[in-house]
């Protein structure tokens, strides 16, 4: 509950600051550049579009999946909008095939665990070139 109130307060502060900033900008422009309201409207449209786009665009999430398949235990990381066991199974098979293992499509993949990780951990693991 406390986190929700904190987030709500933060959102209120951000919106209030933006409104005050734009009102100030509008006054300054009116003073120095009479008839320049279109600039303020333009800024409103651009900023609003960007904020709505940020809120609406699909969120990229990062997952670390530990699996058991064909007497092998391994780990694979992938990025996507969501996690499902079917998707993870498909990614595990593709990862093993990339490494030269012959894994048929109907081979059962046991997902031992799936953890959501931070982007920096994902990037670090990719840099290390690990399959885990």
């Amino acid at each position: 509950m406390r986190e929700k109130i904190e987030t709500l307060l933060k959102a209120f502060i951000v919106v209030s600051s933006a409104v005050v900033f734009l009102a100030l900008l509008s006054s300054v422009l009116k003073y120095f550049l009479p008839g320049g309201e279109w600039i303020v409207s333009g800024i409103f449209i651009i900023t609003g579009t960007w904020l709505v786009y940020r809120a609406m665009k699909p969120k990229r999430r990062y997952f670390s999946v530990c699996y058991y398949v064909n007497n092998m235990i391994g780990n694979v990381m992938f990025a996507g909008e969501h996690y499902t066991a079917v998707l993870a199974g498909k990614i595990v098979r593709e990862s093993l095939r990339d490494d030269g293992d012959d894994i048929p499509d109907d081979c059962h993949v046991t997902i031992i665990s799936c953890t959501e990780v931070m982007k920096k951990d994902f990037d670090h693991a990719k840099q290390q070139g690990s399959r885990a």
């Binding site: 058991y68 092998m72 235990i73 391994g74 780990n75 399959r131 885990a132």
Partner: peptide
């Protein structure tokens, strides 16, 4: 008693 192969650096 069954064997399995590890595909990660540290298990």
């Amino acid at each position: 008693g069954s064997l399995f192969k590890c595909l990660v650096d540290k298990y």
